[in-house]
Simulated scan of single mutants.
Amino acid sequence: MRAFKRLTSIFTNRTAMPAEPSRLRRLLNPWGAMRAHRDTTVVALTIAADIVGNLEDELTVLRSAADDLADLLNDGMLASDIGERLTCGEVERLAGFLKAHDHGRAAAMWLECHAEGDDEGDSHYMGEKSQLALTA
């Protein structure tokens, strides 16, 4: 009986397991490693899904604002007043923006209004075509 008590005391006085499993324990229990990998993958995918959801909301707001701006710029009076004062690069970017938002006619209008103020040698200069468009 005493021998049994001595043996039980040996088994009951073990120190606690370390917080991180040892390398040997991971090798002996591959399912635990797979479970840990699965858990971290689930966490990473959850974070990624949240980020994508937030970006979709922001993208919707930005697209709405860009469409509103494109509608605002689709104005002949505004184009004729400002078009001549823009540089060729600025009007090209503006026309590209309008084309990207399905306002191709507005983009052509801005380019034409800009070309009226261009001098010979500028990239949008139309020569007599501009003068004919003004008289017609």
Rank of each mutant, 00 (worst) to 15 (best):
H101Q: 12
D50I: 05
H37C: 10
A36I: 03
T40L: 12
A95H: 01
S22Y: 04
V61I: 07
E90C: 00
I51E: 08
G53Q: 14
D39Y: 00
T60P: 00
R26Y: 03
R85L: 12
A65P: 05
E56R: 07
R38H: 11
L55H: 04
T40I: 11
N54C: 03
A65C: 05
V43Q: 06
S22N: 01
L69P: 02
A44V: 14
G76R: 10
L86M: 09
I47R: 08
R26V: 15
L98T: 05
E92Q: 11
K99D: 13
I51L: 12
M77D: 15
D68L: 10
T60S: 11
H101P: 03
P21A: 10
H101N: 15
C88I: 05
G104Q: 13
R63G: 01
T40S: 14
D67C: 04
V61C: 01
S80K: 03
V52I: 11
G96I: 09
A107Q: 04
A66E: 10
S22Q: 09
L98R: 00
H37T: 13
R38G: 06
A95R: 05
R38P: 07
S22F: 00
A106I: 06
K99M: 11
E92Y: 02
K99F: 04
A79N: 01
R23N: 11
E84I: 05
H103V: 01
E56W: 02
H37L: 15
V91R: 00
E92A: 13
A106M: 04
S80R: 05
L62M: 05
P30R: 06
A66W: 04
V91P: 03
R38M: 12
N74V: 01
I82Y: 03
T87Q: 03
W31H: 13
L73G: 07
L78V: 06
L45Y: 08
W31F: 09
S80I: 03
N54L: 03
N74S: 15
N54T: 07
E92G: 08
L59K: 06
G89V: 10
A107Y: 01
R26W: 07
D50Y: 08
A33W: 01
V61L: 03
D67L: 09
G104P: 15
L27M: 13
D50E: 12
D57N: 06
L69T: 10
D71T: 08
I82L: 12
G83M: 02
R85T: 03
R23M: 09
A48D: 07
F97I: 08
A33G: 10
